[in-house]
Simulated scan of single mutants.
Amino acid sequence: MARQPEVFVRSLEPEEAQRLVKITRSTRDRVRLRRAGVVLASVQGRSASEIAVMFAASDGYVREVIHAFNESGFAALNPKWSGGRPATIGPAVREQICRIASCKPVELRLPFTTWSLTKLVEYLAGQRITVSTETVRQILRKAGISWQATKTAT
C-alpha cells in the first residue's frame, strides 16, 4: 500500500497559536482538548503518524482533524454532537397510540376496564404497531395522558 502524503496544519498567526495553547490549558471538553493538541503537534512539524501515536488515535482521525482545521479554523475543534437516535415512530403513529390509550378498553370490546401499559402494548401489537412498553409510557407522558385509573377516597 502506498504511503499517504504528509498533512500539516496551515501556517498560523501568532495570535492563533496562542489561542490554541490557551485552549489546551483551559478547556474542560476532552474532544476539544484532543483536537487542539493534534493541531498544535502538527504546527510543531510532527507527522500524522507521530501525532496518532501521541494521542492513541488513528492516522485517519489525525488527518481529518488537520484538514478540518485548515478548512474551518477554530470551529473544527468543537465537537459536533448529534441529537441522538432519530425517532422511529412518526407523529401519525404517536397520535394513534394516544387515541387508543384515551379510549376505554370496554369500548374496544376488550374484557377489562382499564389499561395497563402491558395490555396497551399487546393491543397495539394486534393493530400492527410494534413498540416497547417504555416507548408507550414516554409517548403518553409527553401527551399528558394517564393510562392509570384515578382513585378517589370515599
Rank of each mutant, 00 (worst) to 15 (best):
Q138T: 05
Q138H: 11
S82V: 06
C103S: 11
I100V: 14
G73C: 00
K22M: 05
P14R: 12
E107N: 11
A92F: 03
G83V: 10
V106I: 04
P91M: 13
R25V: 11
I23W: 05
G60M: 08
A36K: 05
S102G: 08
T27E: 05
V31C: 08
K80S: 02
A149N: 05
V136Y: 07
L124C: 02
T133Q: 06
R3S: 11
L120Y: 06
F69K: 12
V93Q: 12
V121K: 15
Q18Y: 04
A92Y: 09
F8H: 09
I51N: 00
V38G: 02
G83Q: 00
T152C: 05
V21C: 04
T118I: 09
V9I: 14
V65T: 12
W81I: 06
W115L: 04
K151W: 03
V65L: 09
A149G: 04
V62Y: 13
L40S: 03
V21P: 08
R141I: 00
W81G: 01
L117V: 12
C103F: 07
R63E: 06
S49L: 06
F69N: 01
S26C: 09
I100W: 05
Q18K: 15
S58E: 02
E50I: 00
A75W: 03
V43K: 10
A75G: 13
W147A: 01
S72W: 14
P105Y: 06
S102H: 04
A57W: 12
P79T: 07
A2W: 04
G37S: 15
P5S: 11
A125R: 15
V136T: 08
L110A: 09
S58M: 01
H67V: 06
V9L: 05
K119I: 00
A125T: 14
E16Q: 15
A75F: 02
F74W: 06
L40N: 10
Q138P: 07
V21I: 15
R30H: 12
V93N: 09
V39L: 02
Q127V: 04
L77P: 02
T118W: 01
L110Y: 01
V53Q: 15
G84Q: 01
K104M: 01
L124R: 01
A143K: 09
R30C: 03
I100C: 02
P105I: 01
M1I: 05
V43G: 01
N70G: 11
Q44T: 04
T114K: 06
A36E: 01
A76K: 09
L33Q: 10
E6L: 14
A2V: 10
Q44K: 13
A2Y: 02
G90V: 08
F55Y: 15
F112Y: 10
A92H: 03
A2M: 09
E50V: 13
E71S: 11
S49I: 03
G84K: 07
I89E: 00
I66D: 00
T27Q: 03
V43T: 09
E15V: 04
P79R: 06
D29T: 08
R28V: 11
R28Y: 08
V31A: 10
M54P: 04
R34G: 04
I129V: 15
A143P: 13
R34K: 14
L140P: 07
V136Q: 02
E6V: 11
M1P: 05
E122C: 03
Y61H: 08
L110W: 00
P14I: 08
D29N: 15
P91W: 04
I145F: 01
V43P: 01
D29G: 02
F74C: 11
E64F: 09
A149Q: 11
I23K: 06
R85T: 10
A57S: 14
